[in-house]
Simulated scan of single mutants.
Amino acid sequence: MGIECQIKDKIAEIVFDVPPVNAFDSHTWMSLPDIITSTARNEDVNCILIRAEGRGFCGGVDIKEMQAHPERITVLNRGNYLTFKAIRDAEIPVVSAVHKFVIGGGIGICGASDTIIAADDAYFSLPEVDRGAMGGASHLSRMLPLHKVRAAFFTGGNIPAEEAYRLGAVEKVVPRDELEAQARAFCAIIAAKSRKALVIAKEALNGLEPRDVDRGYRWEQGFTLEMYMHEDSQKSRDEFVETGRAAKF
């Protein structure tokens, strides 16, 4: 269990297996950038597939850690930022294959990726407003239109995979039991191409983007820190850990 990486047929699979919900603590987030960057630099790898075992793709950050150790927010912020940046800056294409919940930091991983394959039970959510935090909208904005992002952020609501597909964020929606096979098949098409061509294409496509997602996320993180210093932030985390619900204000 933990974060594992396996390479086969020029495809590297980075697999999350952190029970119970793949919600990562600050140490885990800080370990991910090196895993992603070193894998992308491996000359035997032409495509990276990020997927997960367990109940869902990624539950974001470990709220229990932040409840007990709010002073670790700067370490967590840095781990998030470096992880998402490593995915976007990876020399080769990165594909995320997601199932069930894609929450908080899971949005950052998907938003930084080049392509998303989703199981039919997947949904995307940024519940930060209800967790006493901020962040994630910069990467969700790579996936969805502005007003959809704002509606999701203000309400903390869920965006089903089919809706994300309709809006162009998801490449394809597949039955849950076919997710791994379909994602590997998609990655195999990429992996069969020239690594040099893929590296050049990735750099070119990143340079063509009209906005700097990394700078945007850093802007957001300033507000994350500001929120964490407010008493409402601790109240939100306490309520979520104790009851699983959003606090009332």
Rank of each mutant, 00 (worst) to 15 (best):
R184C: 10
D44M: 01
H230P: 04
D120Y: 08
T224R: 05
L82H: 05
I14R: 08
A246W: 00
W219K: 08
E4Q: 14
Y81S: 00
E203L: 07
H147A: 12
V21N: 13
R211D: 00
F124T: 07
K10P: 02
Q6M: 03
I7W: 01
F223L: 05
L49N: 04
F101R: 15
M134A: 06
V18R: 00
R131M: 01
G207K: 04
E226A: 09
E231Q: 12
R176L: 13
L208C: 15
E162L: 05
E43F: 08
K248F: 15
A86F: 12
A152N: 13
N42S: 02
A152V: 10
R41F: 01
K172L: 01
D214A: 07
P20Q: 07
T74D: 13
A40Y: 12
N42G: 01
K193T: 11
A90C: 07
A86L: 07
L82W: 03
D238P: 11
V15K: 10
L126E: 00
M229N: 14
S138M: 09
A119M: 12
Y217T: 05
K172S: 01
V129K: 03
D121A: 04
L225N: 07
E163W: 11
G207V: 09
K235R: 11
F186Q: 01
K202C: 14
E171T: 13
V102I: 15
A204P: 00
F223I: 08
D121T: 11
P127H: 13
A201G: 05
I3M: 02
I107W: 04
Y228L: 08
E162Q: 10
K202F: 09
D25F: 10
T115Q: 13
D17L: 03
L32P: 07
G132N: 09
T39N: 04
H230D: 15
W29S: 02
I50V: 08
S38P: 00
S38A: 01
F154T: 00
V213S: 12
P19H: 02
T224W: 04
D44K: 02
E53W: 11
E180Q: 14
R72T: 13
K172D: 03
T115M: 12
S236L: 03
Y81N: 01
A68K: 15
I36D: 02
F16C: 03
E242M: 03
F154S: 01
E162I: 02
L179D: 02
G157Y: 09
S125Q: 13
E226I: 07
G56M: 04
T83M: 13
N46K: 01
H99N: 15
S26Y: 11
L126R: 00
K85Q: 12
I11Q: 06
L144H: 06
V95D: 09
R51N: 10
W219E: 05
N77C: 08
F249R: 14
W29A: 02
A52K: 15
A247T: 11
R41C: 04
E53T: 13
I48K: 12
C47G: 08
E71K: 14
G54N: 09
